[in-house]
Computed example of a mutant assay.
Amino acid sequence: MTIFRLSPLIKFTLLTLYLALTFPLPLLAQQTQAMDSTVWLWLGLALGFLALGGALSEQVMLDDVGIQVGYPRWVPQWLRPGWSLPWSEIAELNSRTTGQGGLVYYFVTHQRDRAYLLPMRIAGFAQLTRLVQEKTGIDTTDIKPLAQPWMYLILLGFALALVLIEMVTFWSFSPSS
Rank of each mutant, 00 (worst) to 15 (best):
L156D: 01
P86H: 03
L93V: 10
L15K: 02
L85C: 06
L79I: 10
L62V: 10
L6M: 06
P86V: 08
L62W: 11
P76E: 09
A34C: 04
A51T: 09
S174F: 15
G124Q: 10
L153D: 02
P86R: 10
R5Q: 03
R5A: 01
L27T: 13
F49I: 01
Y152R: 04
R114H: 01
L17D: 05
R73C: 11
A91F: 01
P145T: 04
L47W: 15
D139G: 07
L156T: 01
A34Y: 12
W150N: 08
A161V: 09
Q68M: 11
G137H: 11
W171R: 14
S174C: 05
S177I: 15
G99T: 10
I165H: 07
W87N: 09
P81T: 08
Q59Y: 06
A51S: 09
D36R: 14
T136M: 06
M151H: 13
S176Q: 15
Q148I: 06
S84D: 06
D63T: 12
S84F: 03
M61F: 02
L160H: 04
T136K: 10
E134L: 12
G53A: 12
R114Q: 08
R73W: 12
Q100R: 15
L79E: 04
I122R: 00
L17A: 15
S88A: 09
Y152E: 01
E92Q: 08
G48E: 03
L162I: 13
W40L: 13
I67W: 10
D113I: 04
L21M: 15
Q77L: 14
Q31K: 14
L15A: 05
T16I: 12
L45I: 15
T97R: 15
L17G: 13
Y152V: 05
R96V: 07
I67C: 13
M151R: 08
W87D: 07
L19M: 14
E89F: 00
L25Q: 12
Q100T: 15
R114F: 09
F158P: 06
R121P: 02
G54F: 01
V163K: 09
A51L: 15
R112A: 00
L160P: 00
V168N: 08
G82L: 12
Q148D: 10
M167C: 11
V132K: 11
A126P: 05
L15M: 15
F125E: 05
T140P: 13
Y71C: 09
H110G: 06
G157Y: 09
R130G: 05
Y106E: 02
A159R: 12
S172Y: 11
I122M: 02
T16F: 02
L21F: 14
T13S: 13
L79C: 07
T22W: 14
E58M: 06
Q59L: 06
R114A: 10
G54C: 04
D64I: 07
A46V: 02
L153N: 01
E92M: 08
F12I: 15
V75G: 02
G99S: 13
F158Y: 08
T97A: 15
L9I: 03
F4N: 04
V39A: 13
E134T: 00
L160T: 03
E89W: 09
T22V: 01
I154Q: 11
F173P: 00
S88K: 11
L27M: 11
D142L: 14
A91Y: 07
K11G: 03
G54D: 12
V60A: 03
R5E: 02
Q77E: 09
M151Y: 05
N94G: 00
T98Y: 06
F158N: 07
T22F: 14
W42F: 10
L21T: 14
T38Q: 13
